[in-house]
Amino acid sequence: MPWPAFPSIALQPDEVGRLFSALASGRLMFGPRPGSDGSCRLQPLPEIPAHPGAAQPFLSLKKFLVPDGDPLWAWTSERYAGPPPPPRLTVVDLPLCDLQALAWLDLVFAEDPPYRARREALLVVGAPCQPAADCFCDPAGLLPGGDLFRAGTRWWALSPVGEALLVRAAGPGNLAGEPLPGPEPGGAVPTVDPARFAGSAGDPLWDEAAARCLACGACSAVCPTCMCYEVVDDPRLDGTVTRRRVWDNCFFPEHARVAGGHDFRPGRGRRLRFRFEHKYLGFGPWRGLSSCVGCGRCRRACPVGISLEEVAGRLARGAGP
């Protein structure tokens, strides 16, 4: 289903100035920037770049919204304290796939107070990007999350917060519905037939992929929509205890291990299949909603070159030995 039009306007330079001030006021700014090692990461920016230039960072917004080791509460001297207020951030020039991933995180963590607090302190601005050879944009996928989108001099409001910012910069009554530019065609998130998947438990394709899989967890670490976490207590010598949320991973041996040592998913093959199901078929209340945004990070991060997309293709074709 194509995305609807979003409220949009072409801003004059003075209006852009007002908007930039609003985006920067009292906030730390981040954007995707290549490091000296060639890897692109979300890094602090001194100011918002005048011209949009999206690039895909190594880790997506989840590193800000669900950071590894995030404190949930701390117990000090017989008292509990909530987490410190999250930093107010503006992240600019994110590609569409990361905006789609943000929409997914917003869904999954809709009722999660620490996430909500971080999300409400965050402004996200997207921009068009050129898909690389190993990733694609999917216009039939999740509706992009975030607040604003910019291309050339034109801006789009993706959220009520974004719309209020545009109205403040350009005055009321000037916004008109306009479709987002792109996304660039060139791929689609694989559609996986649930019935075929259900019948595939004995299919050798899982064993073949598992024969190479190292279960290192790199794929889900870099996935912008993987958000499994473990909750651990961090007791200190001085008596304080901090309860933290740390990134977990469905490839880890303890992920599905329960009391008594039972394991719902022993072995790499079962874990790989589970990750595939979780990603393409959805889970719980979101069953039927794929959370793959086509960013290609998992395939790039895999030391042995496993591609879930290829697995999906084989499944669709009716893979055999």
Binding site: D37, G38, S39, R41, F58, L59, K63, D68, L214, A215, C216, G217, A218, A221, V222, E230, V232, D233, D234, V246, W247, D248, N249, F252, P253, E254, A301, P303
Partner: peptide, 17 residues
């Protein structure tokens, strides 16, 4: 508490090449 996993996981979290 200990999360049993490989160095790769922490290496990706650190965004290392």
């Amino acid at each position: 508490a200990r999360l049993e996993c490989a160095v790769c996981m922490e290496c990706r979290i650190a965004e290392n090449r």
